[in-house]
Design a protein around this nucleic acid. Structure first.
Length: 112
DNA sequence: CGCTTGACAGGTC
DNA sequence: AGACCTGCCAAGC
């Protein structure tokens, strides 16, 4: 299986209003050895059908830096539409929105 | 074939 | 709290 498709499959499992970290995705992908960097590189070329905006840094940070804030603003916009709360610092509220593969909705109560 | 770079993560200074 | 270093694996040059 191509690493890229494996990553897409994982990201697609992330429900709206939830986010995962690059490291998490890297660890969730089975059969393929990946690193957070690989995930990022793959996200960069992810097709529209993949909710790449739900993948954020370990601290809820958005991939700002190389690409400029342009991408970040679009990502924040998409996430806000899904009900994701952003901190004043411009990061995702991880405590309330980080997704767990086990049980998937472990933080569901918190989200309400 | 080896060095550099990369939407990261974690620990240390 | 912010800056810096190391580890990770793959792809590009």
């Amino acid at each position: 299986m191509d690493p890229a498709e494996a990553v897409y499959a994982v990201v697609k499992r992330v429900p709206p209003g939830r986010v995962v970290t690059y490291g998490q995705v890297a660890g969730l992908v089975e059969g393929v050895t990946l690193t957070p960097r690989e995930v990022g590189a793959i996200m960069n070329v992810a097709p529209p059908e993949v909710p790449w905006q739900r993948v954020v840094g370990a601290k809820g940070t958005l991939p700002i830096g190389k690409r400029g804030t342009e991408l970040m603003l679009r990502q924040r916009s998409l996430l806000e539409q899904e009900g994701v709360a952003f901190l004043p610092s411009g990061q995702v509220d991880m405590a309330a929105h980080q997704w767990s593969p086990e049980g998937g909705d472990a933080l569901g109560g918190l989200f309400e």
